[in-house]
């Protein structure tokens, strides 16, 4: 694995250079205190230090709202939208975000691949960047360190304000051809970047905790604070649920079918024909959300389906914290175990 040094002031030049390999998408400032992934217009606008974007990078592969087909009622015909395959370079991506894309790949491409996702996902290159964890990141607790480089072609590790650029794949190698602002160097271990938020157990112990947590009192407490806005799931990089709806234009002749992200935290999510709702109460939904992250899929895949990005917590208006809930469940589980042991 090759490693080069790169001055912070030369990063815009690198971004411009990467433009030869496709449209470059990178984090930009948004609003007063937020960030979002946008196509780069001016490489100087790209933000290198950011905590997390509002929507995950997922939006580039599975758009929040997407037209699937147009139809005509008059001619009884339809035309599917053809998603073009374009080369794109995703720059400035954090390790947990990359891991979420790999998990999403698994969700969308295993079995019969979701064709629109597949087309958008093809021809993607990824350039990672290290980050300073804030009070919400906890990815280390789910097995993803800051410098996790799986999935990236290139990775920028910040060292004393400048960067070390790791070349990880042939694609990465190719992307540096003709770029002369880098010098070969020895990789350094960066000290002093710590996760402030942690889950107390190793993630491989969590499915067992969840096995006994179904009837925990923690759920009722969370449900009493949750206002059901769906922000946690709509901003989660590994959630993939969507809804499909048809809309007819005012001519009553033509229409479109579109798909938009849905959320299991919404009370209507599990409503079915006849008005039944199989997760009617907030408590059912809150519990379901965490089981989707730490039990159901984890049992099958051996990995937590949460990447510790902290979005669900940072964007929850009620301040409900995912790692705090897990830690409460752990504590409750320890108490229960203690009582079981003492009785014996």
């Amino acid at each position: 694995m090759e490693c080069f040094s790169l001055l912070r002031s030369d990063v815009p030049a690198l971004i411009d250079h990467l433009g030869d390999f496709g449209e470059v998408i990178a984090p930009h400032g948004k609003g007063d205190v937020s960030y979002s992934f946008e196509a780069v217009q001016d490489s100087c606008d790209v933000v290198l230090d950011y905590n997390r974007t509002l929507l995950p990078l997922k939006k580039m592969f599975l758009p929040p709202v997407e037209k699937l087909m147009g139809f005509s009622l008059k001619n009884e015909s339809y035309e599917q939208v053809d998603v073009a395959i374009t080369s794109r370079v995703f720059f400035g991506v954090h390790s947990y975000e990359m891991q979420s894309i790999l998990r999403l790949d698994h969700s969308m491409l295993t079995g019969s691949a979701e064709s629109n996702y597949f087309k958008r996902r093809q021809s993607s290159r990824f350039v990672g960047i290290s980050f300073e964890p804030d009070e919400f990141h906890f990815s280390e607790s789910v097995g993803i360190v800051i410098e996790e480089m799986e999935g990236f072609d290139l990775f920028l590790n910040e060292v004393d304000g400048d960067f070390q650029l790791y070349v990880l794949t042939e694609n990465g190698q190719e992307m540096l051809n003709g770029f002369d602002k880098i010098n070969i160097t020895e990789p350094e271990i960066v000290e002093g970047r710590h996760f402030k938020k942690k889950i107390r157990y190793h993630y491989n112990r969590l499915p067992r905790v969840f096995q006994y947590a179904y009837h925990s009192e923690v759920w009722a407490d969370v449900a009493s604070r949750c206002v059901g806005c769906g922000a946690c799931t709509l901003t989660c990089p590994t959630c993939f649920c969507f809804d499909v709806q048809d809309e007819v234009e005012v001519t009553a002749e033509d229409g479109i079918r579109q798909r938009s992200w849905d959320s299991c935290m919404l009370s209507t999510f599990a409503e079915v024909a006849g008005g039944e709702n199989f997760r009617e109460k907030t408590i059912n939904r809150t519990r379901h959300r965490l089981y989707r992250k730490f039990k159901y899929i984890t049992d099958e895949e051996g990995l937590p389906w949460c990447v510790g990005c902290g979005r669900c917590t940072a964007f929850c208006p009620a301040g409900i914290s995912m790692p705090d809930i897990v830690n409460e469940l752990i504590q409750e589980d320890e108490k229960a175990q203690y009582h079981r042991t003492v009785r014996v």
């Binding site: 007063d32 929507l55 929040p64 769906g230 709509l234």
Partner: peptide, 13 residues
């Protein structure tokens, strides 16, 4: 669904 859903899908701060 709440207004937040459409708000989030538009990626508003």
């Amino acid at each position: 669904s709440p207004v937040c859903v459409e708000c989030k899908l538009k990626e508003n701060e």
